[in-house]
């Protein structure tokens, strides 16, 4: 564990807490994409199947369970919890996440899994687990898209929603620094280029948002996106 990864994880946790608080306190889900959070839930469920098979550390296991439970409760609140669910604007949350996110990521994951020969020599179970892990890496990189597109529609960005996206983006940017650090200071550290590629892609998707977020913070005014 290095300082970059710890800060990245904390940024991730913080973004989830900000969103949970916003939903609980404001009892309002407007401007929040249910589809993004369903994608994140799928990411966590497919990546953390190793909860049952490999023990890394208490920290890892607790965080994994916390991510799954908190994201599940966000999905639950937006979908089913009254009165929050009545404020969710389904008509605006239109990104076709099955066709343009889940489907392509499943195809890409299958292709890279077999081309890389990653699972050869392992049991079928491990192969499926590895395949799901690769799928989750691809899917995480673009899971924020429905939320960013929804934001473009509203233009005026609420403070808490803006903070949520800012911390969510910072998390993966800090992970990139963590990978560089580990490459230099951890002998025997094994590279997963798919994860690196997706981590950079994920961070780039936030770049535009970061720019306008910083500008609005500097001006100290309201945060709105350009047309």
């Amino acid at each position: 564990m290095n300082v970059f990864r710890l800060c990245g994880d904390m940024s991730h946790v913080f973004s989830i807490v900000v969103l949970l608080l916003r939903l609980r306190v404001a009892k309002n889900a407007s401007g929040i994409s249910l589809r993004t959070h369903e994608l994140f839930l799928l990411v966590f469920l497919t990546r953390y199947t190793d909860l049952f098979t490999t023990y890394y550390s208490l920290y890892n296991s607790c965080m994994k369970i916390a991510y799954i439970l908190s994201t599940a409760s966000i999905v639950y609140m937006i979908r089913l919890s009254d009165p929050i669910c009545t404020t969710y604007d389904k008509a605006q949350d239109t990104f076709r996440h099955w066709a343009f996110a889940v489907g392509p990521c499943a195809v890409l994951a299958t292709l890279t899994h077999f081309i890389s020969g990653e699972g050869s020599g392992y049991s079928l179970f491990v192969n499926i687990q590895e395949l799901l892990w690769t799928f989750s890496i691809y899917l995480e990189s673009i899971a924020i898209l429905p939320q960013l597109i929804l934001l473009q529609r509203y233009r005026e960005v609420e403070n808490l929603t803006g903070n949520y996206i800012f911390f969510m983006g910072s998390y993966r940017a800090l992970y990139i620094l963590n990978w560089i650090y580990r490459t230099y200071y951890e002998p025997g550290y094994r590279h997963h280029y798919v994860a690196y590629f997706c981590g950079v892609l994920q961070t780039l998707l936030y770049a535009d948002f970061f720019y306008y977020y910083m500008q609005s913070k500097r001006r100290g005014g309201r945060f709105s996106l350009p047309t």
Binding site: T54, Y56, N60, M63, K64, Y67, V126, H192
Partner: peptide, 10 residues
Amino acid sequence: VDAKSTKDEL
């Protein structure tokens, strides 16, 4: 399954 890679991260 390899430890010491991005797989021991979150």
